[in-house]
Computed example of a mutant assay.
Amino acid sequence: MTQPVWPSWQGGSPAMLASHADRERAVDVLRAGFGEGRLEQPEFEKRVARAYAARTVGELGLLVADLPNGPVPQQSAPFIAVSQPRTNGKAVGSAVCGVLCLASFGLTGIPAVVLGHSARAEIRRTGEGGDGLALTGLVLGWLSTGGWVLFLTVLMVAAAVSG
C-alpha cells in the first residue's frame, strides 16, 4: 500500500489537526469511490464515520489512500464575477407582443414581428442577450399575422361567392 499523500498546502503535515473542510473533502472522495463501485456499502459507511471522527489530516489520508484521487486539495480561486450580457429590450417587447396576440385578437402580431426582426439585428451587432425572446415574438407574431391573412382571405372568398 502506498503512503497516503495529503496536500502540503497551508504548510501542514499528517499530524496537523483536521478541519471540517478537510473532513468534507475526504468524505467527497469516499462518495466518489462509492459511486464508482470501488467501495461496498458497509465499507463506505464505516469510512465515512471514521472520517467524521478523525482528528488529524493523516487519519483522513489513510481513509482515502487506496482510492484513485486520494485526498484532493481544494484550490482556492479568487472570486471572479461573470456578468451576463444585457437582455435586449426590443426582444422582450417582441416576446410580450407575441404572447399578447391571442388576447388582443392579433393586433400585437405586426409589432411583435417588427420588434423581433429589429431585436435580432441589434443582438447580432451588439452581442446582447435575448435572441430566444426575439425569436419567440417573431414566431408568434408571424403565426398571428398569417392566421389573420388566412381568415380575411377566406372571408373575402366567401363574400365573393355568395354574391
Rank of each mutant, 00 (worst) to 15 (best):
E59T: 05
K90M: 07
L102W: 03
G116T: 01
A54R: 08
R86W: 03
V113T: 08
L63A: 08
A65L: 03
A112Q: 05
L115F: 11
G109E: 03
K90S: 07
K46T: 14
R86Q: 14
L102K: 13
V96Q: 07
G70R: 14
A121W: 00
G70D: 10
S94W: 05
A103W: 09
V48S: 03
V113N: 00
R47M: 05
L62E: 15
T108C: 10
A119P: 01
V57K: 14
S83F: 07
G61D: 09
R47A: 06
G70I: 05
L115R: 07
G93K: 03
C97Q: 09
Q75N: 01
L60E: 04
H117V: 00
S94T: 04
Q84D: 08
G93H: 03
G116M: 00
A77F: 14
A121N: 01
L115Y: 11
P73K: 07
G116Y: 02
Q75C: 00
V57N: 06
F105S: 14
L100T: 03
V99P: 00
K90E: 04
E45W: 01
Q74F: 09
G70C: 09
G106N: 14
A121C: 02
A81N: 08
P68Y: 12
A77V: 15
G98P: 07
P42I: 12
S76D: 07
V57G: 13
V96A: 10
T108D: 04
L60Q: 08
T56W: 12
S104W: 02
G116D: 01
V114H: 08
R50F: 06
H117T: 03
S94P: 05
E59P: 09
A121E: 08
R47E: 04
V48W: 05
T87L: 08
E59Y: 11
F79R: 15
R125V: 00
V114R: 08
A65W: 06
C101P: 01
L62C: 10
T87H: 04
Q75S: 06
R50M: 13
E40P: 04
C101W: 02
V48H: 06
A95Y: 14
P42L: 10
C101T: 15
P85Q: 11
G58I: 03
C97N: 15
A54D: 02
Q41T: 13
V99Q: 08
E45N: 11
E59I: 05
A112R: 02
P71D: 12
V114L: 12
P71C: 02
S94G: 13
L115Q: 12
V82E: 13
R124N: 07
A91V: 01
L63H: 10
T56M: 07
S76V: 13
R124H: 04
G106A: 05
E45M: 08
L107F: 03
I80L: 14
A91L: 01
Q75I: 13
L67K: 12
E43I: 09
A81G: 02
V72G: 01
V72Q: 15
R120K: 12
P42G: 07
T108R: 10
